[in-house]
Amino acid sequence: MTASRIEKRFAALAADDRAAFVAYIMAGDPGLEASFEILSGLPAAGADIIELGMPFSDPMAEGPTIQLASQRSLAAGTKMADVLGLVRRFREADDATPIVLMGYLNPVLHRGFERFAGEAAQAGVDGMIIVDCPPEEADPLSDALEGVGISLIRLAAPTTDDARLPAVVRRTSGFVYYVSVAGVTGVKEADASAVAGPVQRLRAASGLPVAVGFGIRTPQRAAEVARVADAVVVGSALVDEIAGALAAGSNENVTERVLSMAAQLSKAVHLARVRNA
């Protein structure tokens, strides 16, 4: 099988001894066209991988920032078909940047795993993270995604003990996502020194790159984590820029604010190991 976009991207970054900057935005926030503009600009702003949130009415693992993004997106009328449509349009101009969909199980289940997997693969999706689908419940979804070459990316948490690790990394590919704090997205701050051990443990157990997310808000923290992890995920800090621009009124350029923050974060991630050396 040919290497996936995710594998190629991590291989290229490893050759440069750089960590990946993973940027999260919510599909359809604050509206479909606005989010397409942000999405299209992210690679130039330094995003190595993009996590695209699928809006859900009941996002139980999200902090206030992503909850509100989800609400804005649904209020703007975003449907699952629109989420896939964004990826399809993005792929017309960019065939290299991996896109990982992140969200909750019910909208995917509602569409049907087989149908969703087929549509997502056709649109150019590379991976999926389903927050409320632990490995114990994942087999039907894995069956569908494996059939079309989409990685089901697993989450590991501070509460994941050694006994659970084999189950957590079974049938996974692409990378493993380490949730660096016990909590919801964007509230508690990650502790870079506490992350190093779990990252090594996960790398060894999975043989895959490890991304760290939940609670990384500043370029400084992103750089610290980039020294120990293979990828750094930032979501709430980017989405906060959308909320901030909306609150500031129509004169603010939403896209500019988000991409400017993304550029600062990506720079910090990409230079982290250089400065350290």
Binding site: L155, D161, G183
Partner: peptide, 9 residues
């Protein structure tokens, strides 16, 4: 048991 990994243990 459809819960996030943090809660699974």
């Amino acid at each position: 048991r459809y819960v996030p990994e943090t809660l699974m243990p």
